[in-house]
Design a protein around this nucleic acid. Structure first.
Lengths: 142, 142
DNA sequence: TTACACCCTCTAGCTACTGTAGGTTCAAGT
DNA sequence: ACTTGAACCTACAGTAGCTAGAGGGTGTAA
């Protein structure tokens, strides 16, 4: 029987986060001691590890919920999981594209800064002047 | 004199977002008509464009605040702006590294899925088995 | 004057947690 | 049996950066 703290340590999760996952129904309500403290078994450890690994790969919690459902129903066809993973892959590729563009613009900004005062600063100038910019009016957050 | 909607259209910002920027002190309180509607001039347009461009480059609002302060004080030395930009560049580079790792793991997952049912699904298996994983216990969010 | 697009404030919601306050329980040592 | 102290509990607020909705007022052109 594992305490929540042990579970946290073993999976690299914060205790609060585990309670949060329980609250939103991603982790099941575990058994409790007479005093009301949570006690977990190995199934919960596995489930949490699955969640954390998925999060590390950038899957949103909703997607993880679907993946867990699939994982709990071994007879269902696999293509749903595949689709979710492909979607995530696409997202990652998009973000990489955006980051590449940002990277070159930032690099240019920094390279051209010669260290005078703000009036001549290339960094500020580039930020001011949108017309030199390669990136589009689209979503932010990289 | 520009309405908030015009400002929004010209900078690719939502009206709500402009009001939000005003609320947190990033945009100044503009003049108002007798009826209480906001009216802007060109200075505000420039300022908002600066903010949006900076956001597109991934700068957090706090950093943008500093950059705006610098931009308003042309005599201050430039290295602060340079430093902020370098910090941002570093962050972008870190994210790119992470994304690259995620990308290869996701690709592997997807490639190996042969389309059976959930019990044999490579995607789920990889998510379950942390030991095959290249990425570390570190921050998420890519 | 009458549409009607646009504007206003205020509040709540989003993701995925994280932190704090104030109190309780468990396990080990004496 | 008792005491200590780490770890646990609930509940609520806060983070970033917006976004959406309700319920109502304003500006302008026909």
């Amino acid at each position: 029987m594992l305490t929540i703290g042990t579970l946290a340590k073993r999976t690299g999760t914060k205790v609060q986060t585990i309670r949060y996952y329980e609250q939103i129904g991603l982790m099941p309500e575990p058994g409790r001691t007479d005093g009301g403290q949570r006690r977990y078994g190995d199934a919960e450890l596995d489930r949490l590890a699955f969640i954390r690994h998925s999060r590390q790969l950038g899957f949103p919690l909703d997607a993880i919920r679907e993946l867990l459902d699939l994982s709990d129903a071994p007879d269902r066809p696999c293509h749903e999981a595949d689709e979710i993973a492909r979607r995530q892959l696409k997202l990652v590729e998009q973000r990489m594209e955006r980051l590449k563009a940002l990277h070159s613009e930032l690099k240019r900004m920094v390279k051209e800064c010669s260290g005078g005062n703000a009036a001549q600063c290339r960094v500020l100038e580039v930020l001011r002047d949108h017309s030199e910019c390669l990136t589009e009016h689209d979503q932010i957050g990289a």
